[in-house]
């Protein structure tokens, strides 16, 4: 059974979003998603300053046998990316909710968070 943290919000496409801290949210992929993909070998991150709409394609995670697009859960501007993943994509496998975060976005509209799944809602998706 994969971990789903109660304090995060989720997308049905398996991204998680942290709570807002000074207008900024962290975004990553869920434990379930990394488990399904297997050992990641590469993460293609957005560039700082790029602006995305909610559900826009913004990153790619690659394992040996699959590549998966990452969609931005919310609208906003990328303010930081997890540079450590360039050399150590396995951080996403080892610690998807911690050191394996992907990027941070300055959120345009906090009410977009209300459209996302809570932990129970995502558990249903992941178990399906």
């Amino acid at each position: 059974m994969s971990d789903v943290l109660d304090e995060l919000r989720y997308c049905s496409t398996h991204e998680w979003v942290s709570s807002v801290d000074k207008g900024v949210v962290s975004i990553g992929i869920t434990d379930h998603a990394q488990d399904q993909l297997g050992d990641l070998v590469f993460v293609e991150l957005p560039e700082v300053g790029q602006v995305f709409e909610a559900e826009g394609e913004c990153a790619v995670v690659e394992s040996v046998k699959a590549a998966s697009d990452i969609y931005s859960p919310v609208s906003g501007e990328v303010v930081e990316v997890n540079e450590a993943l360039m050399d150590s994509p396995e951080l996403v496998n080892d610690d998807p909710y911690g050191d394996g975060w992907l990027f941070k976005i300055r959120i345009t509209d906090e009410t977009e968070l209300d459209n996302l799944l809570d932990a129970d809602g995502y558990r249903e998706v992941a178990d399906a």
Partner: peptide, 12 residues
């Protein structure tokens, strides 16, 4: 690096 290729990445 097969994730670049058509059998995995398809239209991309």
């Amino acid at each position: 690096l097969q994730a670049r290729e058509q059998h995995i990445r398809r239209s991309k």
